[in-house]
Design a protein around this nucleic acid. Structure first.
Lengths: 194, 194
DNA sequence: GTCTATACGATGATAGAC
DNA sequence: GTCTATCATCGTATAGAC
């Protein structure tokens, strides 16, 4: 079903506004001005402010979950799956910047029951991510390590991209990805160090 | 100069409140209730709400800068300096949880000129961190790599600790630190992989 | 669907008595 | 320094005319 152009624009401007100011500091008055409507007119298209946040958060979550599903169903080795997951995060962070920022930082302003639902999805994602790490260890492709520490170090380490990338387009996504993958897999120590 | 006990308590409760709710969602009414005063009485001790945020942000910044200075002035090798810096971050994140959370996430609500001042300090810190990375590369202790990517990957990768640590005391700071240092320096690939 | 007008609560902050 | 009382402002959201 098609979404009306006005509604479309409201969601787009909301994403930009939430990213710039944060959800709480972004007012419906600001949003209305950007869209070119009176505040009350917004409510002909949406129910309330949080609905905007919900859509952004759960749409982003879906991107990650779909990516995870693809990776899980592939026949790749555990470490190759891991590479693809990291690549997925970089891809999303660099192509859907506004959404990812909100998804990453503003989900905490969801009200119940959406907050619980969101956290459950995230926990599920982390669990499936951890499982792949463990499979890599079991297959001796990855070194023996605490998978919880590894999980959060990996996931968190990718969370500067969506804030940093829009400003510094000097580096291509391709080489950025190669650099990050090398860092996480090989570490930064020179193996030939004296 | 000593700080009055009431003022002390106001700052402590503010730190906790800001951490739990975020700066914007934390109201002076909430704070007054926690301190056990009427709202107006708070203003006998502080000028305004943002003053609380400023103190927390710049106090935290000072911790990192002092740590950086100590490391820079030491005679250690570049990679040893890097180890100490990472250790510093882990130390601060696990001992000063409330402040670090606010320092990490809520600085953006500083108003001018404090915001600019804060960003300048942070930029200075990142520059000095990068310099040590570059020295490590020049000394062949670290592998050839993009120092910007490395910088942000390292700094960001440590930013889950202050959110995660308070709940999961199962692991000691010592072994947490060892695990993280190993991950960042050696990577997660098994060097003996077939 | 958009407008004008408005309701209504919460916010940070102040005035002035004690 | 603390209190009670109050202010001005801004927030989300609604009512009802066109």
């Amino acid at each position: 079903m098609p979404v009306s152009p006005t509604k479309q624009k409201i969601f787009e401007e909301a994403a930009r506004l939430f990213q710039e100011n944060g959800y709480l500091a972004a007012s419906m008055r600001d949003l209305a001005q950007r869209v070119g409507l009176q505040v009350s007119s917004l409510y002909s298209h949406i129910g309330n402010k949080e609905e905007l946040l919900q859509k952004i958060c759960f749409d982003s979550a879906r991107l990650y979950l779909e990516g995870m599903k693809n990776v899980e169903e592939s026949a790749a080795s555990p470490s190759e799956k891991l590479r693809r997951l990291i690549s997925l995060h970089i891809q999303i962070a660099t192509t859907d910047v506004t959404s990812v920022t909100i998804f990453s930082d503003e989900w905490r302003h969801l009200s119940e029951p959406y907050l619980q639902e969101f956290l459950a999805i995230r926990k599920d994602y982390e669990k499936r991510f951890s499982r792949i790490l463990q499979q890599g260890i079991d297959a001796s492709e990855l070194v023996e390590m605490n998978t919880t520490v590894a999980l959060f170090t990996i996931l968190t380490s990718l969370r500067w991209l969506h804030r940093w990338y829009p400003e510094k387009r000097g580096i291509s996504v391709k080489s950025l990805e190669a650099e990050i993958l090398r860092f996480l897999f090989e570490g930064m120590k020179n193996p030939n160090a004296g």
